[in-house]
Amino acid sequence: MSQHTPIGLKNETQIIKALTHSGNFHADETMGYVILHYACSPQGDLRKRILSSHIDGDRLTFTRSRSPQVIEKADIVFDVGGIYNPAEGRYDHHMRNKPIRDNGIPYSAAGLLWKDYGLTAVRNLVQTPVDEETILQIWEAIDQSLITPIDQDDNGVAKMGKLSLADIVSACSPPWDTAELYGEDEALKKENLGFANAATAVAAHLVNTVDRIRASLKATNRVIEAYQQAEDKRILIMDTGMPTAKVIFDRDLPVVYVVSPSGKQWNVKAIPPTKGDFGQRVPLPESWAGLERNELARISGVKDAVFAHPARFICGAESKEGAIRMAQLSLQIFDTLKGKK
């Protein structure tokens, strides 16, 4: 993270001239622009700013150019210019001595801007009140899961892959023969429109990612709290449906079944042996497989039992108490069968 106050964050009324290169665009400078938008002028029109030379009331202006004279006049220059000097608002990474992360991965323009402006962007993006520690955790999660892959892709370390954010950005570029077909002026318009489309897609992804990580951190706290309160640590009872598997595997919890509401009923979901695998640590009883309502209630002894999947990884009851009872009975049957072997 930044060791200085980045340009534009100390004085919130300062007009900021941001610039990246013209021509072919990629995920790193597109994300870089989106980061600056949310850090410096989140109320501005992200798309219109790209397509218009001036917007009244917007403290952030944005230009795409390779002209040395235009670059020199900009306050923040990223992915072009040959200089990395954040105190002066210069964020290029194409030099021989390029900026490198502590883990050895070279920074892209997106990574450099996220380092300086990312925390402010996250604060502006979070829609519900959270503490500063959560803001930092969101910043770190996005740095690891989204920004670092962009750094790797842009520096030729590792491709993000098909249908990745990098691929989506590239797909917004006009075809190679646009100038040949429509002329230079029209090609430039189509290029700017493509960048606007790419920035819109990247912005939507960033907004959703911030909110999903916020919710994931919230879920982590609730899962741990529920686990601590559980009488039988093999049965995790959640009063609200939310992701639980990541916490179970990350914390190496011995949870076998998760009981949680789903619509008008409560389900019991079996946890797989390892993250991402099929199968179950403890399958539901074979005698329940594929049964529904009356027949399942008769076999299981749970009066409000609703269903048991043939694959034995999920079952449900009408009530919370019924679902908990199904989880308990399933473990009793498993323990009995295991003891007979």
Rank of each mutant, 00 (worst) to 15 (best):
E286A: 13
I71N: 00
Y257H: 03
P285Q: 04
V282T: 03
L253A: 07
E133K: 13
A196I: 08
D102M: 08
A270F: 01
L19D: 06
D185R: 14
T220N: 14
L165D: 06
E88F: 09
S2N: 12
Q332C: 12
L165N: 05
A199I: 03
A187P: 10
L136N: 08
S164D: 00
N267P: 14
L217V: 05
L206V: 08
I7V: 13
A121F: 03
D177P: 08
M95N: 04
G111K: 09
E180N: 12
M242H: 04
T134Y: 00
A270S: 10
G8M: 09
K17G: 04
G276V: 00
S300D: 06
P273M: 07
V259M: 08
C40S: 01
P283N: 05
V258G: 07
N103A: 05
K162F: 01
N103P: 02
N197E: 13
A317W: 06
K303R: 15
E29L: 12
A121C: 10
Y257P: 02
V70W: 00
T178V: 10
K218E: 15
H309S: 11
G279W: 02
I7N: 05
D154L: 11
V302T: 02
Q14R: 12
V126R: 01
V77D: 00
H309M: 09
L146I: 09
T148K: 14
E72N: 12
A308Q: 04
S262A: 14
P254M: 05
A166F: 08
G322V: 09
P310D: 03
E180W: 15
V256K: 01
G339F: 11
P106K: 05
A289G: 05
I324W: 02
D252I: 03
T13D: 15
L60Q: 01
Q3D: 14
N11H: 09
A27M: 12
S164Y: 00
F78P: 01
G316F: 07
R212A: 15
A226M: 11
N197F: 05
P68F: 07
N103T: 04
I224G: 00
A39T: 08
E132L: 08
K340R: 15
H21F: 00
L112K: 07
G32K: 13
K48T: 09
D153N: 15
A166E: 11
Y33A: 07
G290H: 05
T274V: 15
H205K: 13
E184T: 14
I83C: 05
G82P: 08
T336S: 13
D252G: 03
L51A: 02
N24E: 10
W176K: 14
